[in-house]
Design a protein around this nucleic acid. Structure first.
Lengths: 202, 202
DNA sequence: GTCTATATTGTGATAGAC
DNA sequence: GTCTATCACAATATAGAC
């Protein structure tokens, strides 16, 4: 028999996720989270005692969600171009459906840089393992002597920035909402080519 | 005779800039701004009436500062590779000295997307003019049929992201502060090459 | 213009009944 | 576990003297 009931704790976490992503830590209000969850403030404190505890749970979950996705794709054992295509496609797809997450993380990152160190320590996939595999892919193929750290960062930048800076870019180029969605969709195909051209040996 | 006195209004704007960049809109406190300016809260309200008015002035200034720099370099009339090198060098240099600005803008952008439309309307350099010149550069040279909008966005992304996500990246790759500065410094030389490789006709 | 003092409203957090 | 009522305090904003 399928469990249909959602526990109060889960409802709170869902609501908190929504509100924190929408407003950030300082901007979020316990009242708004309570309303979103259909309960009252007192119950929030009963479950999580403080706003910071609640925030910690949400931030940790957002961070791990995005990095688990990212790292599992990057760690797969396929040729570089195929890996890039998979990686960029699934990653941008994820960002499209969760467009608040990268902005949220970047935001809290700049106000609480110490916090991410702690979160990385409890990451389900240790970054060092990912990096090792990525370096291997580069060496196996006939690539320019590209620093794999640069490659990794460039890829992240090219995927995330158009999502985070969407309102700005959309206005500069006078895109409609629909046109911008299409623009992002095209990038899924064009980014892997762009990157491969940049690093392929002539 | 050089004017040495700094008006109270200028002191307030300087202080507000510092505090808003450090804490964001919600996180900033009028008291902290007053302390930073060496005056008291009442005087803030005397000059700017509300916190939002003060914020508007600061945000507008940060936004125009970064875009004026960006647009004036991108609009120069030199060959593409040279333009890219100039652009990336001066732009990253600017970001290094004002590392809080892009994070600040991205942050408030995600909480007040409407606001940027208004700010763009009062921009000193109209975006449309920049785009025209950029398109011209691409056509003049033997380049792949690259969408100039993609090129523009990719360049922004590659410059800004390593600055904004610094604490995260620094931890992943276990860079010391000094090593990260050097890493950014290297990107000034490598990014133009990376981009030119990506878009040059074979 | 600049200050001290105070009003007013928000918000995170708790007490205590059920 | 869940609620209502309330506390304690922090933050924006204003009044009014100088």
């Amino acid at each position: 028999m399928v469990k249909k009931t959602i526990s109060t704790e889960e409802k709170i976490l869902e609501a908190a996720k929504t509100v924190f992503h929408r407003k950030g830590y300082e901007g979020a209000r316990m009242q708004e989270i309570a309303d979103e969850a259909g309960i009252n403030k007192a119950l929030l404190h009963y479950y999580f005692r403080t706003k910071e505890n609640l925030f910690d749970a949400v931030f940790r979950s957002a961070f791990q969600e995005i990095f688990t996705k990212l790292f599992s794709t990057i760690g797969s054992d396929v040729p570089l171009e195929e890996k890039l295509t998979n990686l960029i496609g699934t990653y941008i797809g994820f960002l499209q459906k969760n467009s608040y997450i990268p902005g949220f993380i970047l935001n809290e990152l700049s106000h609480n840089p110490e916090k991410i160190v702690e979160i990385f320590k409890t990451a389900p996939v240790p970054p060092s393992m990912i990096l090792k595999r990525m370096r291997k892919s580069l060496n196996d193929e006939k690539m320019k002597k590209t620093d794999f750290r640069d490659l990794f960062i460039n890829m992240l930048a090219l995927c995330i920035f158009p999502i985070v800076a969407r309102p700005m870019i959309q206005h500069i180029f006078e895109f409609s909402d629909q046109e911008y969605d299409q623009f992002i969709e095209n990038r899924k195909k064009e980014l892997p080519v762009f990157i491969m051209n940049a690093i392929r040996k002539k």
